[in-house]
Design a protein around this nucleic acid. Structure first.
Lengths: 118, 118
DNA sequence: CGCGTTGTTTGATTGACATCAAACCGAACG
DNA sequence: CGTTCGGTTTGATGTCAATCAAACAACGCG
């Protein structure tokens, strides 16, 4: 049950994490990741599981960036992959950062929809 | 004593704020802004006041983005401009976000220097 | 083995953005 | 008034990043 390469907790960098989260699609992925209220529950990488409207190759690209930034962890199981938020590691390195973002997310996504609906 | 146009507190958007802070130069500006430990003390826009190594027009560009994102406020006084972190507004809209970033900043900047020194 | 499943990688395109230099501009100053 | 001061705006340039489509690859199944 192998795990894709990812930075160690001590290697997490603020600017990298901010950079990767400062993107609407990835912010929505973060919202989904924290949705199942166990904060680090897993979810499949399948494009149907995430209601962001992008091509599956684009989604794969975003998951790679999230993983390389240390925001998520990806586990391989047969031909499936499971993604999980590295909540504890993030909280240990940047206390309060993820909770403050998660708290602001619902309203943010609401405004997104309001804006795109026009 | 006029103030440059800036978004109202209620208009602040998470993705915009994250976007504008996910940039090394602006992160250093944020560090300087919060340095004088009164969190919303002012500082001149003069390029000599900020030890980021960019051209003054580039610095002006960054200040504009910060202001338009609602992160800073710029006040005009004669031919000078004074910048200030909109700490209270940010804290009201995104509780804990700025403090968590500020807490992580010193180490982040330290690694920056370590990396660039080689 | 051959085939569908589950994604990843590659290549091309497109749009953003950081940067600098030079021109510009309002305010103070002589 | 002309000039300097304190920045801003504009234009050009280079780089990075998001996106899609198509090719690819590993796995499991019959």
């Amino acid at each position: 049950m192998s795990v894709l390469p990812q930075p160690d907790r001590s290697e997490l960098r603020l600017s990298t994490v901010l950079n990767v989260l400062a993107e609407p699609v990835r912010l929505r992925l973060l919202a989904h990741l924290s949705e199942d209220h166990e904060l680090d529950s897993e979810r499949r990488c399948a494009v149907e599981e995430w209601s962001v409207g992008v091509h599956k190759s684009t989604l794969s690209h975003h998951f790679r960036l999230l993983r390389e930034a240390g925001v998520t962890s990806t586990r391989l199981d047969g031909r499936r992959r499971w993604v999980r938020l590295r909540y504890d590691d993030l909280e240990a390195r940047f206390p309060g950062l993820i909770p403050s973002i998660l708290a602001a997310l619902p309203e943010e996504l609401e405004r997104d929809r309001a804006q795109n609906a026009t």
